[in-house]
Computed example of a mutant assay.
Amino acid sequence: MTDRAEIYSKVTDLIAPFNKKNVALGDATTFQHDLEWDSLTVMDFVAAIEDEFDIIITMNMQAEIETVGQLVDAVVKLKA
């Protein structure tokens, strides 16, 4: 089982190519406000997360995930 720190590291690695403003990442970093992602970027990123972790993030889950920490926690839960 992968622990939260490992998942956090993989998630931040996956964010890097989409982090055009080189925003410092933390649990509270928001995708919409801090990273300023549009809907297409979000969809591309979600696909990358789903491929990396072999999970499915539903549209309802996506709507509730606003921060890096929330995403990491969702991945941990889906991998359990």
Rank of each mutant, 00 (worst) to 15 (best):
T41M: 11
A16K: 09
L78I: 11
T29Q: 00
E64C: 12
D3E: 14
A47D: 13
D44F: 13
L78Y: 08
D34H: 09
E64T: 11
L14Q: 04
G26H: 04
K20N: 11
L25R: 02
E64Y: 07
F31M: 08
L35K: 04
T30S: 07
E66V: 11
A48P: 01
A63D: 07
V76F: 13
A24F: 04
I57H: 01
D27S: 15
D13E: 12
P17N: 12
A5Q: 15
N22W: 07
Q70R: 08
L14N: 05
I65E: 05
I15M: 02
F53E: 06
M61A: 12
W37F: 06
T58S: 09
L40F: 14
T29D: 01
A28F: 09
F45H: 00
M1K: 10
Q62W: 06
E50L: 10
D73G: 08
L71I: 09
N60H: 06
D3I: 11
E36S: 11
L71Y: 10
D38P: 04
I55S: 03
D51Y: 08
H33W: 11
V42A: 01
D73K: 11
K20C: 10
A63K: 01
T2Q: 15
K77W: 12
N19H: 02
N19G: 02
K21A: 09
R4K: 15
G26R: 09
D44Y: 14
M43T: 06
A74I: 13
W37A: 09
G69S: 14
E52R: 02
A74L: 13
L71G: 05
A24C: 05
D13G: 13
D54R: 10
F45E: 01
N60F: 03
A63Y: 07
E64K: 11
N19K: 01
I15R: 02
L71D: 03
A24V: 00
T58P: 05
T29M: 04
V42C: 07
T41I: 09
N19I: 03
D44T: 10
T2N: 15
L78D: 07
E50C: 07
I49K: 08
